[in-house]
Deep mutational scan, measured.
Amino acid sequence: MTVLPKDIPGDSLKVTVGTANGKPGDTVTVPVTFADVAKMKNVGTCNFYLGYDASLLEVVSVDAGPIVKNAAVNFSSSASNGTISFLFLDNTITDELITADGVFANIKFKLKSVTAKTTTPVTFKDGGAFGDGTMSKIASVTKTNGSVTIDP
C-alpha cells in the first residue's frame, strides 16, 4: 500500500482569532474563523484551546458560528481559569461536516476595569488537533492569535 501526501505544500487550514475593542463593562464579541476549508477536504472534527487573561476578560458565552451545522449536538465549549476549550465533531461522520469558510465560534467577553488603554492577547495554547471530512488528521493548520483592547 502506498500512502501519498494529501496536502499540497503551502496549503493549510487557517484558524484565526479576531479582535475587538471596548470600554470597561462593555461586552464584545471576538470571532474565531476558519478559511481554506474546502482545500483541506472539509473539517469533520477539531479540538483546540485559547488562552486569555482572566483578570482583564470575563467569558460571558461561547457560541457556535454559522458554519457549524447542528451545533447543539456537534459543538461544545467550556471556559475557566483563562482557557477556553473548543470541540467539534460531526456526529453523523459525513452529513454535518464544516464545508465552508466563515465564523466557527463567537466568544463574548465582558471587559474588566483598567486604568490605561490595554491590549490583551487571545492566543492559541498547545494541544488539540483538526481532522478532515474523512477524519484524517489535517497536518497543516495555520493559527493566528487575536486580541481585545480595553480603553477606559
Rank of each mutant, 00 (worst) to 15 (best):
P5Q: 05
P5N: 08
D7C: 09
D7M: 05
G10D: 07
G10A: 11
G10S: 11
G10I: 12
D11F: 13
D11P: 11
L13G: 04
V15P: 08
T16I: 14
T16V: 11
T16D: 07
T16H: 10
V17E: 08
V17P: 10
G18R: 10
T19S: 10
A20F: 12
A20N: 13
A20K: 07
N21C: 13
N21P: 14
N21H: 12
G22K: 10
G22W: 08
G22I: 08
P24Y: 12
G25P: 06
T27W: 14
T27V: 10
T29Y: 11
T29V: 11
V30M: 14
V32N: 06
V32A: 10
V32M: 07
F34L: 10
A35D: 06
A35P: 06
A35T: 08
V37R: 07
V37G: 10
K39A: 12
K39H: 11
K39Y: 09
K39Q: 09
K39D: 11
M40T: 12
K41R: 11
K41M: 14
N42S: 12
N42F: 15
V43L: 07
G44F: 02
G44K: 00
N47E: 00
Y49P: 00
L50H: 10
G51A: 10
Y52C: 10
Y52G: 09
A54N: 12
S55C: 12
S55M: 08
S55T: 12
S55P: 08
L56F: 09
L56V: 12
L57M: 12
L57A: 08
L57S: 10
E58Q: 10
E58V: 13
S61H: 12
S61G: 14
V62S: 05
V62M: 11
V62D: 05
V62C: 08
D63V: 09
A64I: 08
A64G: 12
G65M: 12
P66D: 13
P66A: 12
P66R: 12
I67K: 09
V68N: 07
K69H: 12
K69S: 11
N70L: 04
A71E: 14
N74Y: 03
F75W: 05
S77R: 15
S77C: 15
S78P: 10
S78T: 06
S80T: 12
S80Q: 14
G82N: 15
T83Q: 03
L87Y: 01
L87R: 00
F88E: 01
F88R: 02
F88C: 06
T92F: 00
I93N: 04
I93Y: 01
I93V: 05
I93M: 03
T94V: 15
D95Y: 06
D95I: 03
D95L: 02
E96K: 04
E96G: 03
I98R: 03
A100C: 05
G102S: 04
V103S: 06
F104D: 01
F104N: 01
I107C: 01
I107L: 04
K108C: 04
F109P: 00
L111G: 02
K112A: 03
K112N: 03
S113T: 06
V114Y: 04
T115E: 06
A116C: 06
A116M: 05
A116Y: 04
A116H: 06
K117N: 06
K117D: 05
T118C: 06
T118S: 09
T119I: 11
T119W: 04
T120P: 06
T120Y: 04
T123P: 07
T123K: 14
F124V: 04
F124A: 02
K125W: 07
K125V: 01
K125E: 04
D126Y: 15
D126G: 15
D126C: 15
G128H: 03
A129Y: 00
A129R: 01
F130H: 00
G131V: 02
D132F: 02
G133Y: 04
T134N: 04
M135Q: 03
S136N: 06
I138L: 02
A139V: 06
S140A: 07
V141Q: 04
V141D: 03
T142P: 05
T142N: 07
T142Y: 06
G146T: 07
S147N: 05
S147Q: 05
V148L: 07
V148R: 00
I150K: 08
I150H: 15
D151I: 15
